[in-house]
Write a protein that binds this DNA or RNA. Sequence first.
DNA 1: ATGACCGGCCCGGCCGGA
Length: 261
Amino acid sequence: MMKLVTWNVNSIRQRCDHVLDYLAREQPDVLALQEIKCATDLFPADAFRKAGYECTAVGQKSYNGVAMLARQPFTVTHTALPGWETTPPQARYVEIRTGGLVVGNLYLPNGNSGGSAGYDSKLAFMEALALHARGLLQAGQDFVLMGDYNVCPTDEDCAPGALPPTDALVRPESRAAFRRLLWLGLTDALRALHPAGRFYTFWDYQAAAWQRDSGLRIDHALLSPRVAERLLTALPARDERGKPQPSDHVPLAITLADAMA
DNA sequence: ATGACCGGCCCGGCCGGA
């Protein structure tokens, strides 16, 4: 069995102990982190190495930043999303190969800041991601694309009144771009196992969102066809949000059966 | 009910987040 987890930690330096606790308790094979919010050399790799994980971080001062932790050796296949460039650069993608899988870790632009250019950049990221996924499919590669997509795919993924209909997370163009990923043949792991119901991964720090369960499902794991056949479980770790000094996102964990020989 | 928070930056409020 293989366990893969995605978690937007909203600063790894603030959340290092939470992550170490999670690793000790849940023993994931791969952990994809987003919003580490530090330069690469400030990523606390030593702490994770002591816990039995090799790391690679693609950092950036103050904003964004992604990192991968894995128990087995891995190779880094990309440190940026092919076909998506900005000036200055933004650390929003890292990809590794481990355990017979390519695992892409993404932090999609929110799309609410920077006016129409900011929103266009979000759509451009999604278009580049679709092209990249298509290439992996054509190469016959088994893969998982997991991370903070900053998209609520349907109304059921958004608590009533949590966002106005004009918000970049729920706009029709954002949802259409997410559906295009599914139309390539990718499987939304959570919905494959739980077709209906509330499975939020984010609750805003503001307006008592957690206490009111005013959440969003915006963190996702998309699976290539053969990987989807191996899917056993998919669930957000809701309890993380109730802990002291939590991230506003919780981990989303999936487990896969071993591949057929 | 985005009124209500949080983190980085580097000490004073502002930017970005979703």
